[in-house]
Design a protein around this nucleic acid. Structure first.
Lengths: 167, 167
DNA sequence: GTCGCTATTTTTAGGAA
DNA sequence: ATTCCTAAAAATAGCGA
């Protein structure tokens, strides 16, 4: 494979020098810091929206810039996500912390706690609720079918031994 | 500029087909959805941490996976960022919402309000990542994944050990 | 402040462990 | 569920307007 470009063939000057490698640290120059903030904030929100759409997750992001601004992203809304978090996440102190994960030089912790899914009582019903219900049914159905199939295989002798307990 | 690789020179088969283009929509396959969720959640939090570090912004992210799991990221802490948001953002009605920016089909909102930068009192800041153990759905998905893996092993005839318990 | 410009860096889909 | 791998897709640094 051979890759050529005008630069090499005609010795043209590059129009831009392209992206440069940088290290993640505080950007000292105010103007650059502001530009990077703007660009990356958009990128962050886009990533969040993609994650929502692909996985069905509910996400809220709150960004306080060092100026006087607050930017927020929320699906289905900032408040609903935060409320769920505060009701189910913060007020429950039966959780455990796991500090094994780190992001860069920083400490990351994972909290695990027993929870149960509390139905949303708004009769309005957000799209997410519908999605959850639909998924639940669909998955359950598939699971049942798979289980039936598995049982057949075992009965047919395709699968031997009693290493599995199916009830 | 000339770029060569073993593939071109020796006609070797590519080891992987590399990243594929996808459209951002709900991932139907449960296992793939789960994997993508994990990978992209890490990416999202990394982007957030970089933005914090570069611009000095304060950011909180709350992610409710479709199961019951909650992941959170915050600098200097989730609570402090949310509190600032609620105190200065929610109760203060001098802000404006900007719904002009939408990401795909999702609603993205931007809130602007008067703020001032209050230095965080914890030295160095604090990041965390919380996960609340999942519930029925999450459990169901795990079942599905285990079952799929089981099927593969059965098909491949390489079933060993008693790592699976289906009940 | 935001936008266009690209060369380059970074992320990540798919597959496998 | 995380981790490694590769190659292709996506994000973006530095400039200019």
């Amino acid at each position: 494979m051979v890759i050529k470009n005008e630069s090499s063939d005609r010795l043209m000057k590059k129009k831009t020098q392209g992206r440069k490698k940088i290290e993640i640290k505080k950007i000292e120059k105010s103007s650059n810091r502001q530009v990077t903030f703007s660009k990356r904030r958009v990128g962050l929100f886009k990533k969040a929206s993609e994650l929502c759409e692909q996985s069905g997750a509910e996400i809220a992001i709150i960004v306080h810039s060092i100026g006087k601004r607050v930017f927020a992203f929320g699906h289905p809304s900032v408040d609903s996500v935060i409320n769920r978090f505060e009701i189910n996440g913060s007020s429950d102190d039966s959780h455990e912390w796991d500090y094994s994960g780190t992001y860069n030089e920083l400490v990351a912790a994972e909290l695990e706690a027993e929870k149960r899914l509390d139905e949303m009582n708004n009769g309005g019903g957000f799209w997410w609720d519908a999605a959850v219900e639909g998924l639940e049914l669909e998955e359950l159905e598939r699971y049942m079918m798979a289980l039936e199939e598995l049982k057949k295989m075992i009965e047919a002798g395709t699968l031997t031994g009693d290493r599995f307990t199916i009830s």
